[in-house]
Design a protein around this nucleic acid. Sequence first.
DNA 1: TGTTGCGGGAAGT
DNA 2: ACTTCCCGCAACA
Length: 165
Amino acid sequence: MTNWDINDIKLPQEVKQTDWFQEWPDSYVKHIYSSDDKNAQRHLSSWAMRNTNNHNSRILKKSCLGVVVCSNDCSATDGRKIYLRPAICDKARQKQQRKCCPNCSGPLKLISCRGHGGYPVTNFWRHEGPFIFFQSKGAHDHPRPETKLEAEARRSIQKAHTAVA
DNA sequence: TGTTGCGGGAAGT
DNA sequence: ACTTCCCGCAACA
């Protein structure tokens, strides 16, 4: 059932069963989602993936931005490490890297993804009739960042905090 | 302020 | 010709 490639002229027309949305696709996996799947429609991932132009309007390509860590390698009180979600927008990401670790105030650093032959892991999305075909190339060689929701939540807490101060 | 998708253009192969 | 990266734009939250 996975004997197809995202670049094939013709993708499988008959799909027995669609997959549940995968939040953390890793390694060289393929999925076929229903075109009704909201997360698939939005091409979401909990990895921080940014759009990359492949000059092909039929296949959407995204590449991984890695994870932002504390350069002091500090641990939170619960023992967990700091793994922030890289901002997707270039400008916001440059600004983010000048900020401090929310835990120890040390400098942050971006660990870029080199999981696909030294290059970032790529994800491909293609809408075809009642299906959304997904293909991942490369295995992430870094920890998982915050999910999109976690990052949004932290931003709004920060905002509330600065509003008081 | 940040996310997402689009597309032009440059550069390397 | 094909891929990858960089940039700005526009819609949206």
